[in-house]
C-alpha cells in the first residue's frame, strides 16, 4: 500500500507531454530532485521529505533563427558511469547541462534537412547507455553521443536509422552479462520498438512491430521490454526475441509514462485516465516466462497524468505530475 505524502508545490503547471517528470535521488542529504517541462522552459527543483522545495531553477530552450520561443519536449537526467548530465530536447535541438543545470556543456542544433513543410521538427526521447547518450528526433533517427568522463568534448558518434516516424521514448539498462545483450530499446509514433546492443557501434537485435498506436513510454528490465501505448495497453516483450509475454488492458486512456524500479521489478504506469498503477514483474521459475501481478491503483482525481517516476530503486516511493496541476504529488509505501 502507498500513502500520499506532502506534495511539492511549484510555480508552473506541467505541459501535457509524454514522460513529463524526471527524478534524481541525491543520497547524501536525502534530497530528491525533480525536472519537468512547462512550455518553453524546464523547472528544476529539489525537495526534502517534508515536501518543501529547497532549490528551484528555470532553464530555457535555446533560441535560434525563426521561432522565438521553441518548446521543450523532454528533460531527463542521464546517469553515466562518471558523471550525471541533464539533457533537454526542444524544437530546436539538444541541450546538455551539468546535473544541477548550472552550466550548459553541449548544444546540438537539429538539422531540418529535407523535412517536408508540414513536418514538426523536434528532438524527443533521451537515455544513457554506458558512456553514450542517445536522443531521438522527429525523423525517427536516433543520435548517439559519446560523452567523456569530464569536460565538454561530447561527440556525435553514430546515427541509428531504423525508425521512419518520430521517436517517442528511449530506455536503457546496464548490460546484464553474456546471455542478456539487449541494453537499449527505442520506441516511435507508430508503436514500433527497436531493441539494440550498445557499443562503439550499436547493433540492432530485434524489431517489434507496432499496431499504428504510438508508444509514448518504454522501459527495459532484465532483458524484458515494457511498453505503454496510446490506447491504454501495456505490453511486455522478451527483448532478445521480441516475443509477447504479457498484454494488459491497463488504462482507459493513453499511457503517458512508465517507470521501472530495478531492484524490485516493479512497474509504474500513469495515464490520461487519471490513474496510476503499480505492477510486479517476475519470471516464472518453470517456464521462464515473464508474469505480471497488479499491486496498487491510485486515482489522481481530475488529473491527466503526464509524468510518473519511482523515487528509489526499490520502488517504495513514487512521484506523479499532471497537466494543469501545480504540484508534484508524492506517494510512499506504508
Amino acid at each position: 500500500m502507498y500513502r500520499r505524502e506532502p506534495p511539492v508545490s511549484m510555480r508552473a503547471w506541467p505541459a501535457a507531454l509524454y514522460n513529463n517528470l524526471c527524478v534524481l535521488s541525491v543520497p547524501a542529504p536525502r534530497l530528491t530532485q525533480f525536472a519537468l517541462v512547462h512550455g518553453p522552459n524546464v523547472q528544476l527543483l529539489s525537495a526534502a521529505s517534508d515536501g518543501l522545495p529547497l532549490f528551484q531553477r528555470q532553464l530555457h530552450a535555446k533560441e535560434g533563427a525563426g521561432l522565438s520561443f521553441p518548446l521543450v519536449t523532454q528533460a531527463y537526467w542521464c546517469v553515466l558511469p562518471f558523471r550525471v548530465l541533464l539533457v533537454l530536447t526542444s524544437q530546436r535541438g539538444i541541450q546538455m547541462y551539468e546535473s544541477d543545470g548550472s552550466v550548459m556543456v553541449y548544444w546540438h542544433a537539429l538539422d531540418s534537412g529535407d523535412a517536408p513543410p508540414a513536418q514538426a521538427l523536434f528532438a524527443r526521447g533521451i537515455a544513457a547507455s554506458g558512456h553514450y547518450i542517445c536522443v531521438g528526433t522527429w525523423s525517427g533517427r536516433v543520435l548517439v553521443f559519446d560523452v567523456p568522463a569530464k569536460g565538454p568534448n561530447i561527440v556525435l558518434s553514430e546515427e541509428l536509422d531504423e525508425h521512419r516516424v518520430p521517436i517517442t521514448d528511449i530506455a536503457a539498462e546496464p548490460a546484464q552479462g553474456q546471455d542478456c545483450v539487449a541494453d537499449m530499446v527505442t520506441a516511435d509514433d507508430s508503436g514500433l520498438l527497436c531493441v539494440w546492443k550498445s557499443g562503439p557501434e550499436f547493433k540492432l537485435l530485434t524489431r517489434i512491430s507496432g499496431f499504428g498506436t504510438p508508444c509514448p513510454s518504454v522501459r527495459l528490465w532484465q532483458g524484458t521490454v515494457a511498453a505503454g501505448y496510446g490506447d491504454g495497453q501495456i505490453r511486455i516483450f522478451e527483448a532478445s526475441s521480441g516475443a509477447l509475454h504479457v498484454q494488459i488492458n491497463a488504462h482507459a486512456r493513453g499511457i503517458c509514462a512508465l517507470d521501472l524500479a530495478p531492484e524490485a521489478g516493479k512497474l509504474l504506469s500513469g495515464a490520461e485516465d487519471s490513474f496510476v498503477h503499480i505492477w510486479k514483474l517476475s519470471r516464472n521459475p518453470d517456464s521462464g516466462c515473464i508474469e505480471v501481478e497488479h499491486c496498487h491503483a491510485e486515482c489522481v482525481t481530475d488529473t491527466q497524468v503526464c509524468g510518473a517516476r519511482f523515487c528509489d530503486p526499490r520502488g517504495s516511493s513514487f512521484a506523479v505530475t499532471g497537466y494543469d496541476l501545480a504540484e508534484i504529488l508524492r506517494y510512499s509505501c506504508v
Partner: peptide, 13 residues
C-alpha cells in the same frame, strides 16, 4: 478501439 481496463493476459514462448 480501447479495451475496458481490468485484464492481464499472459502468453508462453
Amino acid at each position: 478501439g480501447t479495451e475496458v481496463p481490468g485484464l492481464i493476459r499472459m502468453f508462453n514462448d
